[in-house]
Amino acid sequence: MIKVENLSKHFGKIKAVDAISFEVNARETLVLLGTSGCGKTTTLKMINRLIEPSGGKIFIDEKNIFEQKPEILRRGIGYVLQNNGLFPHYTVAENIAIVPQLLKWDKKHIEKRVAELLEKLHLSTDYLTAYPNELSGGQQQRVGLARALVADPSVLLMDEPFGALDNVTRSKIHQEFKALDELKRKTIIMVTHDVQEAFELGDRICLMDKGKIVQDGTPAELLFKPHNDFVRGFLQEQRLQLEFKAIKLHDLWAWLPAPQPPKRGAEITDDTSFWNGLEQFKFSASETLNINHGENSEVRSASFEQLMSAFYQYKKQQAHE
């Protein structure tokens, strides 16, 4: 768990970050979203003390981070950068092994862990002795992620981690990112200016502007209960797509057809986003979708039309609230 209280950073007279507070629960992904210069990256870098704040407090798992030595603190926090920051003079294996080396793990342990991560990230072991400039952008970013995860830190900070990738590679890595079990155990703070990415990967989003948090909430809250016009305006573009991504199937539960004998069709869980639900029709070519309720093992089946209809009814209700 990360707790940030009244955090400020002033560069001369400019208040880059102005007394913000937020919390990130364990195993939650918080996205700091905003335009360039809104203070999101500065906020992120204060959490591993790459930037020392002008004021405020930060606690990770109840511990005040300013009472620890910065080097020791950082070894316990994974960090992924936009331009990956891989050491060009180290091989892939050496790059991934940097933190374990600092932590003085024994050699066997390091080798085992590096191999394990490579497999999870779908990188061939042939790359172990390659240098970063011999890899593609997507591969480099995976190595960067492996490097951040290698010592299994409970906290992961990501500064526009997929910003330098092309759209195709990015959406592929997004899928992998969501599927990676290692990441499900982590408390993650991710900085991005990409609204789609924020909605796709974030459990919660802090929308920032001019050093302050404008709204802190789930993607659906930001969409349907915006605090002000800034939030509304920020999400205006591609709004429909955002809504598709923000709404989970269990949000629509009330409007789905009543239980019937199971039909042949794709099986998904109710925490799937509406967007991904629709995509299932495309991929599986089946007429119906069987949605499992996560808590009471209830199953509802819906066709494409029924799903769309549920979506519109949900929206209608939101508008009346």
């Binding site: 020791i72 060009p88 933190v99």
Partner: peptide, 14 residues
């Protein structure tokens, strides 16, 4: 490269 230096620091190098 500034990103390389930053990542070195961020990983806990003195």
């Amino acid at each position: 490269d500034a990103a390389v230096k930053e990542s070195a620091t961020a990983m806990g190098m003195s």
